[in-house]
Write a protein that binds this DNA or RNA. Structure first.
Length: 460
DNA sequence: TGATATGATTGGAC
DNA sequence: GTCCAATCATATCA
């Protein structure tokens, strides 16, 4: 509104200017000062308003992109209008547009109008000077970019989050098949997000470029009727880019959110608890009960157990942690299980011994015993064996056949007491473990060392 | 559907 | 860093 007022004020001055230009006889001057200039001004304003009323598409359709921008008036040659007219003919625009434009360009008061517009513009430029500053890179965009890059959404396609997925899957301890299914599922969804992101980004970039061209062409076209400097066009382009980059930021933001949701879902799936398979539990229990005096597997033992069970070392640690606590809390409840595993390991050992004696060689219970814990198996099994031989443990009926087998085996091998004298191991009573001291004081002391020592009976 | 079992997590002590 | 103890969350079973 202010510009309009200024414009009109300027045009009032324009009337005076026109008067001065004429500078003819008094009669003519009088006539002109009264009627002709007013008519001229009204005429030129009408033309300007007509052009202003053009729609963007109309203006765009009759612009000449190949022309240098921001030159006032250009050529007044009507043939130039003809070029536009050619465009219009192609675009089907009404001819009166080129007439209007041509009329305006050829108007005798155009130079005066130009000087007024320049004057107004100078003032306007002064007021907007300093507004345009180089924007520093937006930290939020940088964060989003970094995240998208790290997740493998933007940038070159790579493992990206799938590496994290693999690690998480490994930590989940599920079977390899399960984890690979989850892994591929995760990768597929991430790829989907990536695809959508890139296609949207491309669309935005295309739209930005199209819109920028549109506006630039429009400004070039307008530069024929009002003074527009290249810098102004640049500024406008910068504004457009800012607008589009804010849209891009939204795209990046929602992509990040999508990735986060996907990840949290995946991690939830990882968190989903799965029972270890029967064989794994058996292996762990075997180790636990055969090392009941000191159920703290060494790092190597943990690794071996993990390998055997198809779980991670930390899962083995968790399992032993849980087992120790729960066993200690309720020894009675675990007694049957303890007996079962004691018998099992003892039977295994006895079988091996029997085979050895049958082969007419000295009984070496640790030779050829199954598993890596053969020696210690026999060690703690010995305890259970003694108990089973009448030291007051309750035997579940289901265990009786195994006990009988064990009795036969011990008879065959002469029992393990010989082994205790061999110096290869130190037998402990089941309840003589210092790790259980807090709840079950030992009746016979046989300190296996502090729990923190990560001592393994395999080292006995 | 509630009880129980069990793997995982967390916070503190050493 | 490991272990304990408590707790959570889910699976399994009766």
């Amino acid at each position: 509104m202010d510009d309009q007022t200024r414009m009109l004020t300027g045009l009032t001055g324009l009337a005076g200017l026109a008067q001065a230009d004429v500078g003819d006889p008094d009669s003519v001057r009088k006539q002109q000062s009264l009627g002709q200039p007013q008519q001229d001004i009204g005429d030129i304003l009408q033309q300007i308003m007509a052009i202003t009323d053009e729609s963007l598409d109309e203006a765009q359709a009759r612009c000449w992109p190949e022309e240098s921008p921001a030159h006032w008036g250009g050529s007044d040659d009507p043939t130039e209008g003809g070029r536009a007219g050619g465009g219009m003919a192609g675009g089907g625009l009404p001819l009166n547009f080129q007439h209007r434009k041509h009329a305006l360009n050829c108007h005798r008061m155009k130079p005066a109008l130009f000087s007024v517009l320049c004057e107004i513009k100078e003032k306007t430029v002064l007021s907007i000077r300093g507004v345009q500053e180089e924007d520093p890179p937006d930290p939020q965009i940088m964060r989003l970019d970094n995240m998208l890059l790290a997740e493998g959404v933007s940038g070159p396609e790579k493992g990206g989050g799938s590496a994290a997925a693999a690690a998480a899957a490994a930590a989940a301890g599920g079977s390899p098949t399960d984890s690979s299914i989850e892994h591929s599922d995760y990768r597929a969804k991430l790829a989907q997000i990536r695809q959508i992101y890139h296609s949207e980004l491309e669309k935005y970039e295309q739209a930005c470029s199209e819109f920028t061209n549109h506006v630039m062409n429009l400004l070039r076209e307008q530069s024929r009727t009002r003074p527009i400097s290249p810098k102004e066009i640049e500024r406008m382009v910068a504004i457009i880019h800012r607008k589009f980059s804010s849209i891009q930021m939204q795209l990046k933001q929602s992509t990040c959110e999508a990735v986060m949701i996907l990840r949290s879902r995946f991690l939830d799936a990882r968190r989903k608890r799965r029972n270890f398979n029967k064989q794994a539990t058996e292996v762990l229990n075997e180790y636990f009960y055969s090392h009941l005096s000191n159920p703290y597997p060494s790092e190597e033992a943990k690794e071996e157990l993990a390998k055997k069970c198809g779980i991670t070392v930390s899962q083995v640690s968790n399992w032993f942690g849980n087992k120790r606590i729960r066993y200690k809390k309720n020894i009675g409840k675990f007694q049957e299980e303890a007996n079962l595993y004691a018998v099992k390991t003892a039977v295994d050992a006895a079988n091996v011994s029997a085979q050895a004696s049958q082969a007419n060689s000295p009984a070496t219970p640790n030779s050829g015993s199954p598993g890596s814990y053969s020696l210690s198996h026999t060690g703690d099994a010995y305890l259970s064996l003694r108990s089973l031989n009448g030291e007051g443990l309750n035997i579940a009926p289901s265990l009786q056949p195994q006990v009988d087998t064990l009795h036969r085996a011990t008879h065959l091998t002469g029992g393990y007491e010989e082994l205790s004298g061999s110096g290869l191991y130190t037998p402990h009573r089941l309840d003589a473990n210092s790790w259980q001291d807090t709840t079950n004081p030992p009746s016979v002391t046989s300190p296996p060392g502090p729990p923190g020592s990560v001592h393994s009976d395999t080292s006995n």
